[in-house]
């Protein structure tokens, strides 16, 4: 691979890692999700230096142009992460549901107790 391209790609990967970690610091993303992203980043970084092996692998699975294989796998990984994110959304929706329901029931109980107390006070 062209030297300039290698330097450019490495810089890009490093920049991404820096951005991810600064986001963790500011608590904009969770640590466990940051790990996932930085893992992906490290894989890409390794891929930059192992193009020969990747080429052999591409030939093995029958993909003629290396970039096609990279895009294919990139797409698959992004899809997998997206599916992961939708499961997180579902999980959070469930939690919000439970919280909303319990809060409503608790509110009802508080009103009930307040009424009982008021009635008691009135009787005194």
């Amino acid at each position: 691979m062209n030297k300039n391209l290698t330097i450019f790609l490495v810089c890009l990967c490093l920049l991404t890692i820096i951005v991810i970690f600064s986001m963790v610091k500011k608590k904009k993303i969770l640590f466990k999700h940051a790990l996932l992203w930085s893992l992906l980043d490290i894989v890409l970084l390794i891929a930059v230096f192992t193009t020969d092996i990747l080429l052999d692998f591409a030939n093995l699975v029958g993909i003629e142009v290396l970039s096609n294989m990279v895009f294919l796998f990139g797409f698959i990984i992004v899809l997998a992460i997206l599916i992961g994110v939708t499961t997180i959304v579902a999980e959070q929706k469930n939690k919000i549901n439970v919280l909303t329901q319990e809060l409503g029931i608790l509110n009802n109980r508080v009103r009930e107790l307040e009424n009982e107390q008021n009635n008691g006070n009135n009787k005194k």
């Binding site: 919000i96 549901n97 909303t100 329901q101 809060l103 409503g104 029931i105 509110n107 009802n108």
Partner: peptide
């Protein structure tokens, strides 16, 4: 009544 703060 039970008052739900969100629409579920």
């Amino acid at each position: 009544f039970i008052d739900l703060p969100n629409n579920l």
